[in-house]
Design a protein around this nucleic acid. Structure first.
Lengths: 341, 341
DNA sequence: CTGAAAGCGCTTACAG
DNA sequence: CTGAAAGCGCTTACAG
């Protein structure tokens, strides 16, 4: 069975011949694995360009072994798993590394998931909240020479790689947006306090309100835990209030809670956004499922996952000169759940 | 950088030596690519077992080229993408084949997605509804000798491979379950009629009702389109009815619509399941997000995706004696949104 | 039915 | 800094 490749693809030898050097030197340039004279590098880079050379990952892997990267994730039912996996696997197949997924719920202790991955021989591992903030996890990884990358942490370790968004600024931007719409009395629903991004988002909200000279009453701050159900409970308290006492906008730390608030509003005949604006955070699938669709802060999970895999892959190669912390841009997504006051 | 493999792993030569044959013959046994005498096969199979031999996929790919499998999917925001990708990539990495994902929304015409994949050199492609039911799509694939697998079609082509659940029986089982709970007046929300599973599910409902000798009033059948919003609209009509005229249970063709119905019920102060039971279909993430959590029919997407990739991979190898149609078992998942009448 | 040889495209020592 | 040789583990012709 022959390879069914339309572009037959140039090999390292084609490049070598074209540039008039040995395959060895081409390999060195491609992998940045040793110094090559400026002159040769130029010639080779030109040949690569000209011949449209792309290294054959399978051949490389046959010689080198595959780079295994572990991924721990907490919630198999989460609404953003699809995006995350898409990004991770896109990068994985581009770079030719093997991805091992380890769901947290399969283990009694979170650290066991990491141990399992280490035993399977990973060279790096992606850690989401809250395990990305666990010192033990980082120590365990380091002990086994496994690079641990904090993913979407609100509080990344300085000495280890991280991919994240600026949660503080994201929340601040959303708050300013609501204020810009004329809202003065804005409620906030906190997330699970053990998740570091929840903290940063809350801080972003508070600081933005202070910047605008707006007070935040204690009774406008609700404690949620990121679940839909907790959003339901918050909404029930919120809408039990007299209409004129109520905040005119509510900003929830994630989309699931915001979606729940909309659901309750719908049932209590409170019009969204006419009577109350509702904003979420993350822009997961549920944000565009519910109606009215949620105004939220988009977290580019797909690109973030790609980047995380790239960083971990690079950290194992010689040319590991990648930046260690990658802060992805968030984006305010204005949909139908928010409006003028 | 050495491969960081705890188990160093036996090679084909180790197996050959252990069995006292040539590597060539081992390869033949492993790949079932040519006939080998019973005696040798036994010896070799024993050696493989004994040495715990697993073929090195990278080395194989270096020689053979990778098997590329295309995946078309319709909705990047769908709630079950995560499960699906997880299964597909699990199988992909186990079998050493490359997966190319092509989102439908990226193309003006659905067929363009397929053309793109064909141009990229896939040997097989996974087609979800509704494109799996398009004759043109199958013809196009066949014309380019690409194997097209229908995924979760309600109406798979007999001559081409398919992975699906028995939607008819799933819907029937759910209907019988509701009837068993004492419900007599059961409403049904149809799905997008261009999706073949929607049809089968409706038929399953109707037949089950007939089997139980229960009438289905025309005004108990609602037309939805699988979206949350359509569920919202159905719910508004439904709950506008007098309490004593209303059905005591409603069965929606998918979870999103069922979730919307619960949301409206919540707001109109109709207790679920005390006053109305709500059932969904698919068991996607949203089913266990909402509260009360949805009683639904679980479709094992992860395993189905794995199977689909396995079938497509096998169809390219010599030992393509796999069954062509794989019907995965559905499961009735009883949660809190349904109860006694 | 079985095997010795050559090669997939790349990289790792080893020389210069 | 550069290259000729050998080898990663497997499979494809080619012989017998």
């Amino acid at each position: 069975m022959k390879q069914n490749n339309s572009k037959q693809g140039a090999t390292i030898h084609d490049v070598a011949e074209y540039a008039g050097v040995s395959a060895m030197t081409v390999s060195r340039v491609v992998n940045k694995s040793a110094s090559v004279s400026e002159k040769m590098r130029k010639k080779i880079e030109n040949a690569i360009e000209e011949l449209n050379y792309v290294p054959n990952l399978a051949a490389r892997a046959a010689r080198t072994g595959v780079n295994k990267i572990g991924i721990i994730f907490s919630n198999p039912k989460s609404h953003n798993l699809g995006d995350f996996l898409m990004g991770a696997f896109t990068a994985g197949s581009k770079l030719g590394c093997e991805l091992l997924i380890e769901p947290l719920p399969a283990h009694p202790e979170p650290l066991d998931a990491l141990k399992t991955l280490i035993n399977k021989g990973v060279s790096g591992v992606i850690l989401p909240p809250p395990i990305c903030d666990s010192l033990e996890a980082h120590q365990l990884a380091r002990k086994h020479s496994v690079t641990a990358l904090s993913f979407a942490s609100g509080n990344p370790k300085l000495h280890s790689p991280a991919v994240l968004i600026d949660d503080f600024s994201g929340a601040s931007a959303m708050t300013h947006y609501l204020i810009g719409l004329g809202h003065k009395k804005i409620a906030f629903v906190k997330g699970d306090p053990s998740h570091s991004p929840a903290i940063s988002r809350f801080e972003g909200f508070m600081v933005a309100m202070a910047e605008a000279g707006l007070d935040v009453d204690d009774d406008c701050i609700y404690q949620g835990d990121f679940t839909y159900k907790s959003g339901l409970e918050v909404a029930q308290k919120l809408f039990a209030k007299d209409k004129f006492q109520r905040p005119t906008a509510i900003f929830a730390t994630n989309d699931e809670m915001a979606a729940a608030i909309i659901a309750v509003a719908h049932g209590m005949d409170v019009k969204v956004p006419e009577e109350i604006s509702v904003a979420g955070f993350d822009d997961t699938a549920i944000a565009s499922t519910v109606w009215p669709q949620l105004t939220t802060v988009h977290q580019p999970l797909r690109q973030m996952a790609e980047k995380a895999v790239e960083i971990l892959d690079a950290s194992l190669r010689k040319n590991a000169q990648e930046q260690k912390h990658f802060v992805a841009p968030f984006k305010l997504v204005e949909r139908e759940s928010t409006g003028h006051c």
